[in-house]
């Protein structure tokens, strides 16, 4: 009796229970401004994968975090910027490449933009497959390809200044780059 009263009152105070907003289903591929939730992305992947009904034996997750140092500089925070519609299309392209190379893999990928503090996740990648080798390889492939072709930029704010980090010239049709990502994935 006392227990049920207590648990009832806890539930009433939980803002997740009483909200007017209907939470839309989490997409597999997304650009987000809010902190990334690994559980939500895992949920989206298992939802997308539910037709296989228990065929998967492996889940691999990759989180990229904001590091407190880079190239000898003390990093204070990062700001990420994206060309959002093209970024999501590049995620879709990477998902297609993975589907072609590792047909058993399902991938979820969310990238955060805006200001990120040290230790926060800028990217979460989740891959599932019946066996671990494919899930590991596809996850590594995804992060390599993101760094090659996703129109996303990090603006590093460090002690004493700031700098735009400039990596690869994005060219999704560059076969050599794609092969390099595949080699890294299968090393």
């Amino acid at each position: 009796m006392a227990l049920s009263t207590t648990s009832g009152s806890l539930t009433t105070c939980d803002p997740r229970v009483y909200t007017d907003k209907v939470t839309p289903p989490t997409p597999l591929l997304a650009i987000e401004r809010a902190p990334l939730g690994l559980d939500l992305i895992l949920g989206a992947v298992s939802q997308a994968d539910s037709a296989r009904g228990g065929a998967d034996g492996a889940v691999v997750t990759f989180l990229g975090l904001v590091r407190n140092h880079n190239a000898g500089r003390r990093v204070l925070y990062l700001e990420y910027e994206a060309y959002e519609p093209l970024a999501v299309k590049s995620f879709e392209r990477i998902a297609k490449e993975i589907h072609h190379r590792w047909p058993s893999v399902v991938m979820g990928l969310h990238h955060r933009i805006g200001r990120l503090e040290i230790g926060e996740a800028s990217i979460v990648i989740v891959t599932t497959s019946p066996h671990r080798a494919d899930a590991f390889a596809a996850c590594r492939y995804a992060i390599e390809r993101i760094k090659q072709i996703a129109p996303i930029w990090k603006h590093e704010h460090f002690e004493g200044g700031d700098v735009w980090i400039e990596g690869a010239t994005a060219d999704p049709d560059d076969v050599r780059a794609r092969e390099a990502a595949e080699r890294a994935a299968c090393a």
Binding site: A150, W153, E166, T169
Partner: peptide, 10 residues
């Protein structure tokens, strides 16, 4: 038309 400097996502 969008012009994109070298990318640095991840």
């Amino acid at each position: 038309v969008a012009f994109l400097p070298p990318v640095s996502g991840g």
